[in-house]
Amino acid sequence: MKKRILIVEDDPAISELLRYNLEQNNFHALTAFDGQEAMELLKSVSFSLVLLDLMLPKISGLEIIKRLRADKNKVPIIILTAKDSQEDKVTGLNLGADDYVTKPFEITELIARVNAVLRRQGAEANHINTNAPLQIDNNNFQAVVAGKHILLTKTEYKLFKYLYDNVNITLTREQIAQHLGDISTFSLQSSRAIDIQISHLRDKIEQNPKEPKYLQTVRGFGYRLTM
């Protein structure tokens, strides 16, 4: 699955340049042209990384970083800064940004920095925090519940990872079925198959599968992993 990147840039030409080149490098890119639009997207969509201009209408880039980190949102952020904005660059990094690129920039350098930040994020994600109630162990294809490693089948792991990568976002049965790759067209039979896989996964990660704490049913839509 392509990694989803949010471009927050009020200059349409720069935004389109970034979007085009990210798409050419096998990323899925969404755009926002002001800080308010960016915050709305960040609340409703899961992103692998944010490219963030600091000088934005409505809500500044620095304020976006501040709000995200205050909400414990750890999405990696690369800030886009002007040549003479050394102070803003330092402030952004101190607030929790992961890297910066100075305008004007070489697109090859920016793509390299995006990949480097995502690699670091992946390495950190594979370090299991046993104090967290629910984690994923990508090295061993397991779920980790209250520090205990849980064996999963191949399908259960793929389902759990998809839900985990989209935590707090409702996924439809059709989206889940397409991700698992078991269907060409969605049907009632596919829907029932997903419900069965969800039930198996609940049996493994929930203390009480009949009253799930993490893997929630969103009636009329699908399922959501909540943490």
Rank of each mutant, 00 (worst) to 15 (best):
A97H: 14
P104M: 07
V50R: 07
T81F: 09
L54V: 09
I59P: 07
Y100E: 13
N73P: 00
G122C: 02
N94A: 12
T102W: 04
T102V: 15
T130C: 06
F141C: 10
D98L: 03
I78D: 14
V50D: 05
T108C: 04
L110N: 08
L49M: 12
G147K: 07
E63C: 00
D137S: 03
N138S: 14
I79G: 04
G147H: 05
V145W: 14
V75H: 04
E109N: 09
I107G: 01
D137R: 01
I107F: 06
E124W: 15
V75W: 01
R69Q: 09
D99L: 08
Y100Q: 02
T91K: 10
D71Y: 03
A112D: 03
S60W: 11
K66F: 06
L56S: 00
V75L: 05
N140D: 15
R113D: 08
P104A: 09
G122W: 11
D99S: 05
I77Q: 05
D98T: 10
V101K: 04
D99I: 00
G147E: 01
G96S: 10
L54E: 06
L93T: 09
H127D: 09
L56V: 10
N115S: 11
K66P: 00
I77V: 13
I65M: 01
I79C: 12
I78F: 13
D53V: 05
L80G: 02
Q135G: 08
T130E: 12
P76I: 05
Q135H: 11
K83N: 03
Q135N: 13
V75N: 06
V50T: 01
A97F: 15
L49R: 00
N139F: 06
P104W: 12
A125V: 14
A112P: 08
R119N: 11
